[in-house]
């Protein structure tokens, strides 16, 4: 199936870009006129994925984050990719309430939120190379 539209944007890992990324993703998906709560879920999941890239992928140092959105008639696929340090143990990182940075008052719920707010979540990571988070969301109620 071919997407009806697609978008790719690249930005540096500054925390102020968390807001930029979620607004861009939501604006792009809004053209499909999804229910407002579905749009809100997408904003939240994108914010979590980009925050993870900034905090964990790059340890808050400067790096590149790529966000790609493929819009289909009934769903959207969103990929957030960084080229940072990667994740050694993806299963552990996805455990609810687990955080490798408790000193930052992180809730350890980033991946749990992405899983809950989106319909699917796939995490690919190579230590030392980076992490790619792939999420999908239906744009109407089933």
């Amino acid at each position: 199936m071919q997407p009806v539209n697609k978008m790719r944007t690249e930005f540096i890992s500054k925390s102020v870009n968390e807001g930029f990324a979620r607004v861009v993703a939501a604006s792009f998906v809004a053209q499909a006129d999804p229910p407002i709560d579905i749009l809100a879920d997408i904003r939240t999941a994108v914010s979590e994925a980009v925050t993870n890239a900034i905090i964990h992928g790059y340890d808050e140092k400067e790096g590149i984050i790529i966000m790609e959105c493929l819009l289909y008639t009934d769903h959207v696929e969103i990929t957030i990719e960084d080229f940072g340090k990667g994740i050694d143990d993806i299963e552990k990182a996805r455990t609810p309430l687990y955080t490798s940075k408790p000193e930052l008052e992180r809730s350890g719920m980033g991946f749990t939120v992405m899983e809950t707010f989106m319909d699917s979540l796939t995490v690919e990571s190579v230590p030392g190379k980076g992490t790619k988070v792939h999420m999908t969301k239906q744009l109407e109620y089933r």
Binding site: R43, T44, S47, E105, R106, S107, G110, T112
Partner: peptide, 13 residues
């Protein structure tokens, strides 16, 4: 108008 899990961390702290 928006809160992600950083808000949970903030409130818990």
């Amino acid at each position: 108008t928006f809160m992600d899990s950083a808000g949970i961390g903030l409130i818990k702290g």
